[in-house]
Design a protein around this nucleic acid. Sequence first.
RNA 1: GGUCUCGUAGUAUAACGGUUAGUACAACGGGUUUUCAUCCCGUCAACGCGGGUUCGACUCCCGCCGAGAUCACCA
Length: 491
Amino acid sequence: MEEIKTRFAPSPTGYIHIGNVRSAIYPYLIARQTGGKFILRIEDTDRARYVDGATELIEDALKWLGLEWDEGPIVGGPNEPYFQSEREDLYIEWAKKLINAGRAYLDETAPEIVDQYRKEDSEKKIPFLYRNHRPDTADLSPEETLARWKKGIPLRFKADPKNYEWTDEVMGEMHTGPEVCDDIILIKKDGLPTYNFAHNVDDAEMNVTHIARGVEYLSSMPNYLALYEALGLNRPKFLSLPHILAPQGNKKLGKRDGAKSVTEYRDDGVLPEAMLNYLACLGWNDGTEKEIYTKDELIKAFSIDRIQNSGARFDEVKIYWYNGQWIRKIADEQGMEALYPRTNGFWPEVAKNEPEDYKLRVLSIIYDRLKTLSDLKTMTDYFFVDPEVKPEMILENKFLKKLSETELIELLTMTIERLNDVKDWSEDGLQNELNELLAKSGKKPAEYFSLIRLAVSFAPFSPALHQTLSVLGSEKVLARLNATRTALSNN
RNA sequence: GGUCUCGUAGUAUAACGGUUAGUACAACGGGUUUUCAUCCCGUCAACGCGGGUUCGACUCCCGCCGAGAUCACCA
């Protein structure tokens, strides 16, 4: 039984955004599911578009998502190197096979001339095919071609115009006619291969069994199949993955649409589990109503034939929903201690020197309000520093505005006096105290609790009152209640 | 223009000839002793159009319409 091998083969032209990372996720899942290998290959044959450091960005994103590769940069493998720019000799070798087979020719036609051909055909309203404009060098014998070929002379494939049929694992049975077969460039003027040639050579060399990539390559398939035949290669399985669509319009999501990099979501406090879960389920489902998948569950449940064949729109609102689910899932299943390390770097500046166990307690009462970890930055200040006292926030509160200032002050006084004597500041203990205070106040819960909540936090929202007070502790609570009472008195 | 692909609510999807067309996000309303959120309950909302085939079509066939991809010495 042949070992399953899949690959992700990005070009180092910048960061990986959520529009293209899915073509890493599905191959990864296929490899893991079958006990096969997942290869990372860097397709850097376009020197003009090469961006320094982009490879690291790609590696970083894959690692964060948990898509570890078995062969590729850093880890090596049996087909090193995994950078196409370092495999130049190999492509030349394979190109010579094509020359010897009479299926490749030298072409020094200037790009301007090619443009001219294109224009002429367009005016004649016939489809532009380069094979209708083959130069004289196309008739040279393999020996002559080989003898004249040197770096700097582009090499073209000699197409075999006919019907092609193949199976796309996602799109189904495909067939095209001879009109789409053309002479594609194999080796460029700079001596490096084009994508069209290099990736086929590499996939063959690396024994890739499943080629997954965006649907934009679907229309190039006949030319690739011609190449397979000319080289005597077996066809792997092909998966054309539909595009992830931009928020507006129906076009493929790209950087121009503001597609964020995968790691930008990491920096915003999205968990990799949530991102992987969401992206995997954007355009795939297992037929059940299950929504939340761990990586292992995805590996187990994934199947190629349930990949959606229409484009799916990326929904930032839903990724945040997934993230909230995952924050709670980790806390509830693995404990707050497991979630806590993930919050590193997401606390407000004022929490910098606070003890870990205190922050852990804050997290434990506020985690179910988080959509992203970075919400901690804006939601927890008052746990670490005394809030600015703003009497108007109390006076204008929808539940409190009907109470007089005198009443408010009396309620605060009553609370301060009672809490002064309380020794048990546990959540349960405070729950009881607050219930008794509420009864004694004669106010509605919304009135009394809102007052105390605002008096100690001056925040638009906060966790349950007894939890908030318990975590803050008697000293802070009493000081803040006093400060608020003083401010109201002076108002 | 040639070739190819796609088409269920605002979004993501289920259904694989017979269901009141299911689910999730969003929106809206309600419930849980305050707020925000979680959680729970509910409401709104979809088969692109037109022909066939069939006792019966979201499902099969044809046409149309709409959307997208591709036609580079970019990948």
